[in-house]
Nucleic acid binder design. Sequence first.
DNA 1: CACTATTAAATCGCGCACGATCAAATCGTG
DNA 2: CACGATTTGATCGTGCGCGATTTAATAGTG
Lengths: 149, 149
Amino acid sequence: MPKPSPKSSGSLLSLDRQLCFAVYSTAHAFARRYKPLLDALGLTYPQYVVMLVLWEEDGLTVGDIGARLLLDSATLTPLLKRLEAAGLLTRERDPEDERRVRIRLTDAGRELRAKAESVPRAIGCATGLDLAEMERLQGELLKLRDALG
Amino acid sequence: MPKPSPKSSGSLLSLDRQLCFAVYSTAHAFARRYKPLLDALGLTYPQYVVMLVLWEEDGLTVGDIGARLLLDSATLTPLLKRLEAAGLLTRERDPEDERRVRIRLTDAGRELRAKAESVPRAIGCATGLDLAEMERLQGELLKLRDALG
DNA sequence: CACTATTAAATCGCGCACGATCAAATCGTG
DNA sequence: CACGATTTGATCGTGCGCGATTTAATAGTG
């Protein structure tokens, strides 16, 4: 008779064996944790991530942002329009190449960075992990993501 | 002068330090990998996860499913209606307690399980991880999720 | 130079995900 | 038994996320 698996009695189709579900539900758990912090900034999580990119490098095109975040223009265009409506950035065609749209922070957009400074530490505490563990886990996830991608 | 951090030159607000972004973008990478496999079954990823739950235990209420998947009725009700329209399950009020709605697989719903059997292995290969690594990473993620939760 | 191919962004449609609200059924307490 | 509180699911509005298509600008080719 075949030796039974030491862990998890179900088949490979069992929910508790799905690495993907662990990633999926952890992403939602993060979103719920971020929400009250980001509400104070008037941002959603995807908007916050776009602002992170722009705080690192301003004047990117829609495509540049999409390449960093793995999102396409169908997602970014409406999101960027909402950030523009909120007064955090401007969108204008690049005169060098009219196909491109350059995204630039406004003063309000740059000033929001100071308020956002406290967010990573608050989330970090909530994870219950120390910095080294977080970096190791992050590295494994990015490796997995790139293997999938 | 302060000793510079050995890794990652940016601040805590830098995208490449955000564990959350690693989880978020890995979840999307998984979704993209699953899509062609699930298209063959006529399911989206969230629908597939609901089917996983029902293949393990049939006759659950909407709330039972939500508790397992951490989703609420605003997400599940329309999703379940689509699965009902696809002929995979039935939705009916529990005569014992008319507030509850019992979800039951149809024959077609049960039969779909056989087709789904090949999905986890195909995904597992794409991760580039062996079973032990997958289980360890999954365990760490669930621990993180519950800490956030 | 004309013409095609490619690229960048916008648009449309659909399906989550969730906060807020609502209606109905049930439970609890007096 | 009556009546307020709780539970369960449905509904509505907003914002992603992405496949498919469209439009405009640019690059490449004969």
